[in-house]
Amino acid sequence: MECLIQTENVSKTYNARRPDEFRALEDISLRIGQGEVVVLKGPSGSGKTTLLSLIGCMSRPTAGSILVAGKNVAKLPERFLTRTRQRTFGFIFQQFNLLRDITVMENVLLPLYPRETRIGEMQERGRTLLVQLGIESKQHSKVYQLSGGEQQRVAIARALINDPEIVIADEPTAHLDSKLSVDLLGILDNINRMGKTILIATHDPLVYEHPLITRTISMRDGRIEGVSTP
């Protein structure tokens, strides 16, 4: 399996050299192959979300290197880092991070506004995704009018609109009940079948015990505790 993501001795320290200095990650080295569905599991504060945000180019490590498709993103200038984030990653956040007072369709199309994609084509792509996720009837609704499960689907549609190679999901079931969580895993399964690599941070057994998962990385106190393959 071709290696898509590789981290070498990655560390992340917040508020360095200040009294409230906090080491969130320490010496993280891992390899994730293309098409894998990898779970980062561990208790709150174990560093799962920090690791996801470093791999997803949302912030930079204090030390170490992160290679995404062979490119060291830890050293990329801001402009190129954003471009990598835009073209390579789709994010599903724990809090959904949708803009509440715009429509579902506008939220889904957000990543495409600063790109040279025609409006007609943008809307077509948006509609196709909403149909696939079963929420096309909500495309003109405002986000605050939706249920938690529907908002989660909007966040998934937005993550997929750029057709990213890697989908990153941070605690995707945190705000869903069991039925909706199972539905979500079904959706992630479909996404994986499209050839996408999926990286999930969770402490929900429903997720990390699902047959879809190819590898589980256990974390504690900013370090990798163990790796298991089902």
Partner: peptide
């Protein structure tokens, strides 16, 4: 602004 950056908007955008 954070959400826009996260979904791929550049600082200049």
């Amino acid at each position: 602004i954070g959400i826009l950056k996260a979904v791929g908007w550049e600082t200049s955008d």
